[in-house]
Amino acid sequence: MKYTPKTLKNNVNVTPGSPLRELIKLLAWVVGGLVALYIILGLVVSMMAPHISLKVETGMGRLFNNHICVNEIKKESKRLQKLVDGFYPFLTSDDRRLNYKVFVTQNSQVNAMALPGGTIVVFSGLLNKVSSQSELTFILAHELGHFHNRDHLKGLGRALVALVLSVTILGENSSATNFIFNSIVQVEMKFSRNQEKAADLYAVGLLKKRYGNAKGALEFMKKLVREEKRWKLFYYFSSHPHPAYRLKYIRNAL
């Protein structure tokens, strides 16, 4: 047999097609799948949250308190505690089961948190912004609203799901995971904005029950609107709705 050399016409070992298109397709699948998984797991956690027993919740609370509750400003804590205690007669019997404890901590952030076990953490940065007692009652009522909707447990659950997901995939490649994780955070923020709205509306209802008006809510929101200089689109990435929008639905609720 005579040897006749020839070159290969087609390379069967390399699949034709654009790698860029493949990347886009894969990213869509992976991000879509993870977001779906995250939403489903989040829903499961939200469904579970109302059934977490008081004992478990207080146990979880103690765990948190050790880490977050540092640098207490005792005088301020006492003052706010009195305001919260004043809400007790107006709470539903279910909400009254928790023992609400206010904790003012030295921190420049303008924020307040509802922790498992009934602890309301208020950062001193927020207190510096507040000028009247009625505004303060609105903030506290807003946090009580989170307890009423059990957001403090739901949020915790979803954060846990996000954490587990990210850590599982972090083993593969941290940069790619970051991208995926950021997409998930977007979805979480939307959830979060809905929760904030529900807490706002609950607070308005509670203030009306206690004082007959919701002056504090309006005052505080107007102040936020006045001081708001950030671009409106920024709120797409934020955990809270835009102050102007909050003011609008609070007005509607009155």
Binding site: L23, L26, N173, A176
Partner: peptide
């Protein structure tokens, strides 16, 4: 990165 995504 493409391969690591394919891994999933």
């Amino acid at each position: 990165i493409l391969a690591s995504l394919k891994n999933l």
